[in-house]
């Protein structure tokens, strides 16, 4: 054989790389992070730093164990997206070991055991979240109330104190913790209180009549639109997901508003927008064909609604995503685009 090893064209590139793509996603998450800090206090920052530390340790160990170069892969930022997604999902004041365990599980079982970046079939963040939700339901449902309900938020030191020790001297934490709207809706329904009543009880004191949780979702939308413009995510994901979710909730809300909340409430509560722009858009685990992406997103939207309203969990996003992850190879197979010059 010829020893000359030709390098193939093209000899130019648009200077994009994985790190930049991941970084863009991370940056797009900042509006929501800031909003979160403003509304729920610094708990999330502590959690995020904890997760970051875990990430560095786990990645280093795993890459070493797998015999891969550490530096390029630890800096590919993909783990960062995973832990950011996870951090947004857990209660800001959950004990420190929750996030450590969750991130470790997500990174090892969600990514490295499948062969690392690009090879994982399931969304690592959602895998970690589901692991935590099933294993530690109590810790996972103790949410802080947003600023408008609690009247105050915890600063960084207080949050850290609580996360590590479990209490803050001279502070009654019960005053600022409570159920999320989705949770109270579920509890209300089980006690025979109609959706309308539950939502009327809500004290809406914030701007535009939106609750704190809803404002976080709005912040996600802002970051997400930025991602679409910079082509970091495909528009099919949010459009398909939100469209399907809105459609289903509209239909059921029309059928029985007593039982089913309105479209606006559905779209702006729980992790809807986080999922729409940051979680389901993870390209590794999503469908890759344009049509497939849309179908995948629609599937998640419908599943989320089903789990929220008839399932055992208040927010079904993680389960919906994992379920659709399984269906991705099938979707890809049947949604191949028409190649130029070929008949359909």
């Amino acid at each position: 054989m010829n020893t000359f090893n030709p390098s193939s064209s093209p000899f130019t590139h648009n200077n994009q790389n994985v790190r930049k793509v991941m970084l863009k996603v991370q940056i797009a998450a900042f509006p929501a992070l800031l909003m979160h800090v403003y509304l729920f206090g610094y708990g999330i920052v502590v959690q995020w730093l904890l997760a970051l530390t875990t990430l560095l340790v786990v990645e280093y160990v795993m890459l070493k164990m797998r015999g891969r170069p550490v530096l390029p892969f630890i800096t590919d930022m993909s783990g960062l997206i995973t832990i950011t997604g996870l951090v947004f999902c857990i209660p800001p004041l959950a004990p420190w070991w929750i996030i450590v365990l969750g991130s470790t599980f997500a990174l090892i079982f969600g990514k490295h055991l499948y062969g690392g970046l690009g090879y994982n079939p399931f969304n690592p963040a959602m895998l970690g979240y589901v692991f935590l939700l099933i294993s530690f339901p109590v810790q996972m449902t103790q949410w802080i109330l947003p600023l408008d309900l609690a009247g105050q938020t915890l600063d960084f030191i207080q949050s850290a104190h609580y996360i590590f020790i479990g209490q803050i001297p001279g502070f009654n934490l019960d005053a600022i913790t409570g159920a999320t709207p989705l949770n109270s809706l579920r509890t209300g329904l089980s006690q025979g209180v109609s959706v309308i009543q539950t939502l009327q009880n809500k004290d809406v004191s914030m701007l535009f009549g939106l609750s704190g949780w809803e404002w976080v979702n709005v912040a996600f939308v802002v970051g997400g639109i930025g991602l679409i413009i910079t082509r970091s995510i495909s528009w099919q994901f949010p459009v398909g997901f939100l469209g399907a979710l809105a459609l289903v909730s509209f239909i059921f809300n029309q059928i029985n508003p007593e039982l089913y909340p309105s479209v606006g409430f559905t779209l702006l509560n729980g992790g809807t927008m986080l999922a729409a722009f940051f979680i389901i858009t993870d390209p590794v685990t999503a469908s890759t064909t344009p049509k497939g992406r849309f179908i995948y997103a629609c599937g998640i939207g419908i599943l989320v609604y089903v789990i929220r309203n008839w399932g055992a969990f208040p927010d079904g996003i993680a389960f919906a995503i994992l379920l659709m992850n399984i269906a991705v190879p099938l979707i890809d197979q049947y949604t191949q685009p028409r190649v130029f010059g070929h008949k359909v």
Partner: peptide, 18 residues
């Protein structure tokens, strides 16, 4: 055309990880 040189890609053959 030869196959691209994979010395740069550290995540080599996926088959080996299974």
């Amino acid at each position: 055309w030869p196959e691209p040189d994979e010395t740069l890609i550290s995540e080599a053959k996926p088959g080996k990880n299974h």
